[in-house]
C-alpha cells in the first residue's frame, strides 16, 4: 500500500493506516467488518501474489500492446531494433480476409460446442436425479474417468479411436453398414476434422457441466417439491417453477464458462492439426496466433492478433464476472 502521505483532515481522502476506514470499506462486504490496527498487514499479504501476476501477466500485457505497434519479425529476432509502425499491423490484419475467416470459424465452433456440451451436460444431470443409486454412481464414474484424463492423453486416445485403418470407430461404422468409412481419414477433410474436434471437446467438457448442474439440482430442497406436489403441481410444473429458478444461476455461470473455454480452445486443434489436419483450413484464433508468431516469426502481427482474442474472451469474462458478483457477495 502506498503510505498515504497527506491525509490529516480531508474527509474523503485516503485514510491513513490504522484509522477506521469505514466509508471506504463498509459497503464492500455483507459481514461484520473488523477494523483493528491492521493497517498495512493485508497489503503485505497480497504482495507475493501481486508480484507474480505483475511479472508473468501484467508485464507481458504491456509488452504485447507495445509490440503490436511495432514491426517485429524475424529480423528483430536476430537483433535488429524493432521499428514503430503505428497501426500497420492492425490494418493489415483487419483487411486480411483470413483473420475474419478464422474469427468466424472460432465463434461458430465455440457456440456449437458450448451448446452441445450444455444440452448433454444438463440432460445427464437430470438423468442422474431420475435413476437409482447404482446407475447414478455408474454414470458418475464413467463421466469422472473422462474428466480426470489429462488432455493430451485423451487427445492421443481419440486419435487412435479415429485412426483410419485400425481405428475402432471406423470399424464400428463399417459394421453398422456405412461402407464408405472403411479406411476413412477423419482429419483431412475440414468438416470431418471439426466433427472429431467437437466430439473430443464435448467428451471432455460434459462431465464438469453434468456434475455442476447435478450439484445445483440436489441443493433444491426436497420440501419445496413435496409441498408443491401436495398442492397438485405436476412434475413438469414443479421442474419449471421450483427447480429452474433455483438452478438458473448455475446454468448461467457454467454456460458462460463453456463459451469462454471453447472460444480459446487451442490444444485439441493444435494436436489434431499436427496429426493430419490441413492447417490453413482448420485454424482457430489460438492456433492462428501460434502459427503466425512462433511459426512464422511475425511477432508484431501475432501480438496484434492476440488482442482480438483477448478482447473477445475478456468481454465475455466481464459479463461472467458480473453474473458471479451478483450471485456472491464479495
Amino acid at each position: 500500500m502506498p503510505p498515504s502521505p497527506t491525509s490529516s483532515a480531508s474527509p474523503a481522502g485516503p485514510v491513513p493506516a490504522g484509522a477506521p476506514s469505514a466509508g471506504a470499506g463498509a459497503p464492500a462486504g455483507g459481514g461484520k467488518p473488523r477494523r483493528r490496527r491492521e493497517g498495512l498487514l493485508p497489503y503485505v499479504l497480497l504482495v507475493p501474489a501481486v508480484l507474480v501476476l505483475a511479472a508473468a501477466l501484467g508485464y507481458p500485457l504491456v509488452r504485447q500492446a507495445v509490440m503490436s505497434f511495432q514491426e517485429y519479425g524475424l529480423a528483430q529476432q536476430f537483433g535488429q531494433p524493432p521499428q514503430w509502425v503505428g497501426l500497420d499491423n492492425y490494418v493489415e490484419l483487419v483487411t486480411d480476409s483470413y483473420l475474419w475467416t478464422v474469427i468466424v470459424r472460432s465463434v461458430v465452433f465455440c457456440l456449437a460446442n458450448a451448446a452441445i456440451t450444455m444440452v448433454l451436460g444438463v440432460a445427464l444431470a437430470v438423468l442422474m436425479t431420475l435413476t437409482g443409486t447404482g446407475p447414478r454412481l455408474t454414470l458418475q464414474i464413467g463421466l469422472l474417468l473422462a474428466w480426470a484424463m489429462p488432455h493430451l492423453a485423451s487427445l492421443t486416445v481419440w486419435q487412435w479411436l479415429f485412426e483410419a485403418q485400425y481405428g475402432v470407430i471406423n470399424w464400428v461404422l463399417v459394421r453398422a453398414g456405412f461402407e464408405q468409412f472403411a479406411g476413412h481419414s477423419w482429419l483431412i477433410d475440414q468438416l470431418s476434422f471439426f466433427v472429431v474436434a467437437t466430439v473430443i471437446v464435448v467428451w471432455m467438457s460434459v462431465p464438469f457441466v453434468a456434475f455442476a448442474v447435478y450439484a445445483g439440482l440436489t441443493q433444491v430442497p426436497g420440501e419445496l417439491h413435496e409441498a408443491a406436489a401436495i398442492d397438485g403441481a405436476s412434475a413438469w410444473q414443479r421442474f419449471r417453477a421450483i427447480t429452474m429458478p433455483l438452478v438458473r444461476p448455475v446454468l448461467l455461470i457454467v454456460g458462460l464458462l463453456q463459451i469462454i473455454w471453447d472460444l480459446k480452445v487451442f490444444t485439441q486443434i493444435f494436436v489434431l492439426q499436427d496429426a493430419g489436419g490441413v492447417t490453413a483450413e482448420t485454424n482457430l484464433i489460438g492456433t492462428y496466433i501460434y502459427r503466425l508468431g512462433l511459426g512464422e516469426g511475425e511477432f508484431g502481427m501475432a501480438a496484434a492478433a492476440s488482442w482480438f482474442m483477448l478482447l473477445l474472451t475478456v468481454t465475455l469474462s466481464l459479463y461472467y464476472v458480473r453474473v458471479l458478483v451478483r450471485e456472491e457477495e464479495l
Binding site: 504485447q64 509490440m67 480459446k264 487451442f266 496466433i289 508468431g293 492476440s306 483477448l310
Partner: peptide, 8 residues
C-alpha cells in the same frame, strides 16, 4: 486466456 498472451 494463455492463448491470448503467450506471444509476449
Amino acid at each position: 486466456p494463455a492463448e491470448g498472451l503467450f506471444i509476449s
